[in-house]
Amino acid sequence: CASDDIEYTEAEKQYEAAKKRVEKGEYNMAAFELEKFSANFPYSTYAAKGELLRIFAAYKGSEFILSEMLSESFVERHPKHPHVDYALYMLAMSHYKQRGSESKDPTHNKLAIEAFKRLISEHPRSKYAKDGQARLQKLYDTIASHELIVGKYYFDRERYVAAANRFQTVIKEYQTTSAIEESLYYLAASYAEMGLFKDARQMALLLRHNYPNSEWSSRVKEYL
């Protein structure tokens, strides 16, 4: 009916205007305008497109808390949308951008890992899944080094039970990360300090066997 056409073109006009702003790089302005857009044209076919554009604008404008919230609600309301993998990717990247280094708060790292894993499992063939895979490895490395750093903190203060448990977390959950070699070494050292020489030798052998040319396995002689 007539009213739909007018509304249709009006929605299209505002959508195109916002798109131009994004192309010109005025991300924050575009994100602000697109909030009014989705309130004014909730029923139009442009509604979902507008939401995706707003997620992109917020993300490029480094408003990661906003892009995180928008992408999360998009995925919930449009579970089968053709571009839902993009929204999931944006959710993961928003967390990724708020991640901490290995000696800082790991909460966003963990949330990013969850989002990337969901992207890869639900949309294995999406072009975003490949990029997700590479980022996952980097996130696991950071979290593993966080465990290692806290373990060494307790090792330096002779809290060997605490230290050993932290190193075992790396071995249990993060074998494929860069922190594994050092964790095996320090686990052996912690066992030795506790007088558990059988366990110390077992870790030393494991380190030598799996990572023969690592700098850490050359230091393990005393525990063999």
């Binding site: 050993a164 448990n165 075992q168 977390t169 071995i171 506790m194």
Partner: peptide, 10 residues
């Protein structure tokens, strides 16, 4: 003795 504080994952 309660549960052991020292993990034994391996």
């Amino acid at each position: 003795l309660g549960s052991p504080m020292l993990d034994s994952t391996l």
